Structures are given as C-alpha cells and as structure tokens.
Simulated scan of single mutants.
Amino acid sequence: MLKRHFLAGALLCCVGAPRAAPLPAFDCGDIAVAFYEHGALYYRDGNGQWAGIDKDIVDELGKRLGCRFHASVDSRVRIWTNLKGGTLPMSVSGIATPERLQFARFLPYFTSRNYVLLQKNSKPAVHDLASFLAEPGYKVAVIKSFKHGPTYDAWLAQLRKEGRVYETADYGSLIRLFKLGRVQAVLALNTSLAPLSRQRDLADGVRILDWAPKDVIVGGLVLSRQLIPEATAEQFAQAIHAMREDGTLRAIYSRHVGAELAAGMFNF
C-alpha cells in the first residue's frame, strides 16, 4: 500500500461530513488534460468513441465547475515527462510518489489492485512471485513508467536486473506481447480484467493470479503545481468529495466495471 504520508502530501482536503449544499459556480477556464488507454479506465466503446471511468470523472468535473477540458491521448511516459516539464496541466488515474509530488498534486478518486496474467501453458510449479523468479526463461511485460505497488515493484526490480522485463509504451502493446507468447506474464489492474475477459483469443489462454493481495493502488487526478493554481485544485478536491458523497463516483464505477467491483474502489 502506498505510504500514508505520501497520500497526505497529495491530498488537498480531507474526507469529512457531506456538504450541506452544492458547490458554488466556479469557472476554472480552459484546461488541457491527457488521457491514456487502459482497461475500463479509458477505452473505445462499440461505436469507436472514447469512454471509461477517467473520462466520466473529468466530464462530471466540467459540469460541476464549469471547466472546459481539452482532451488528448498520449503514452504514459510522455504524459509524465510533460507534467514534470510544466507543459501539461492535468492527467488522470495517476499514482503519487515522492518524486511526482514535487511537481504535481494528486486528488484520489479510486483504489485498485494489480493481478498477474500468466500464460495457461506455463509450468504448474509457477504459482507465486518466487517460483516465477526461479524460472530464468520466464519474462514479464509492463507499461513503462507505471507503478504497481511495493510488492510487484520490488519483484520487477529483481527481474530487470536479469533482463527479464519488457517495457511497452501502452496497454495495447502489452497485451499483444502476451498474446504472441513473447512474455509469460503481464500485470493488469482489476479494472482491466472485465475488458480482457471479453477477448476470446486471450481469455482461454490465461490464468489470473493474485500474488500481492495486500497491495492497494490509489489513483487520482494529477494536477501540475506549475500550471494549476492551488485554489483551482482545491475546487477539484471538493467536487470529487461531493461526487463520492452523493453517489456519483459509485455510479460511474458501476457503469464500467459492475457493482461488485465498484464497491471496493473507495478505499482512498
């Protein structure tokens, strides 16, 4: 689990009693926001339109605060580079780290967990992190710049020393490597499991394993300290709190991952 003192530095307001009245009108102007494709967080629907939890969160903020968001889609590596360089005001579903807190504020709106997707034809003896490490020919793929929680990040650090980690630019590339059998495992958030299960060429050949049950990933809005005024960030934080209290967040989660998974996404 991310250390609470990191989250304390990221949060701009604490969760308290429900607000007695709706937020006052607030025009935060035009803000560029970069999304990245990843499971139920951001994806193309059956009509080819962008959809997902992240999109619905941002759309709702626009309605409540009068913000005019200008969306783009980019790789996570470029997004973090631009945030750090002060050329991008905002992104979504980011994970706070001490380094990132130096240039961005984080406003949590969901929790998630990573699971291991293992090739079904892998050796039966591979049943946990240690036994995967013990197979020198086994490799794993991850998206470059992603944080996966303390347990998986320590495991990946060991694998990187042995040259057994593929770094991909995006989620699509990650899944393609797995389907082609170039790697024996990938890591996926639980918000990605439902979309993956609908891919018939993948679902029948994968084992979904929980090798770090105590790790929790906290994702939130990422706001540039350089480009987003603190007063604006405070308004965002109050709006997210209101969305949690009035059931909007639960409705958004349920729409994309179902009610059962949605119920466990509030531990922030």
Score class of each variant (00 low, 15 high):
G46A: 15
T248G: 01
A130R: 14
Q235D: 06
G48S: 08
L156Y: 05
A96Q: 03
D153K: 09
V257D: 09
R113L: 02
R68A: 15
S192Y: 00
V58P: 10
V142W: 02
Q235M: 13
A242E: 10
A71D: 14
H148N: 11
R100H: 01
I53P: 09
D246E: 04
K84C: 12
D56Y: 04
T111P: 01
L101Q: 08
G85K: 07
Y36R: 07
A154W: 09
Q49V: 06
F26G: 09
K214P: 09
R182G: 10
V222H: 00
A262Q: 01
C13S: 15
A25E: 15
T111Y: 00
V257C: 02
D215A: 08
L41E: 01
K214R: 12
S75I: 07
R44H: 10
A233Q: 05
A262D: 03
W155F: 12
S224A: 08
C28D: 10
L133V: 14
D74Y: 08
G29V: 09
Y166G: 03
D246I: 01
D128M: 08
T168P: 07
A157Q: 15
S72R: 15
K3A: 09
L101P: 01
L202Q: 02
E260D: 15
A130K: 15
A262N: 00
R64F: 07
T97A: 04
V142I: 13
A239L: 05
R164M: 12
K84S: 14
M265I: 10
K147G: 14
A239H: 06
V126A: 07
L117W: 01
R68L: 12
F103M: 01
R113C: 11
H241Y: 13
F268C: 09
V58N: 04
L223N: 07
Q119V: 13
V58L: 14
V218K: 06
V92E: 02
R68Y: 12
D210M: 01
E60G: 14
A21L: 06
L83Q: 08
K3T: 06
A8N: 11
T191H: 09
F6T: 12
P24S: 04
M265W: 03
I79K: 02
V92M: 08
K161W: 05
S131C: 06
R4G: 15
V186P: 00
L249D: 03
S112H: 03
I228L: 10
T232N: 13
R207K: 11
D210K: 00
Q235V: 02
R76Y: 14
V142R: 04
F266Q: 13
I31F: 14
Q235F: 09
G264V: 05
D74W: 10
L261Q: 10
D74P: 12
T191F: 00
A262H: 03
F178R: 02
P150M: 06
A203P: 09
A233T: 12
E245K: 11
R207G: 02
P213I: 13
F266C: 12
C28G: 13
A251L: 07
V77Y: 13
C28R: 03
Q238F: 08
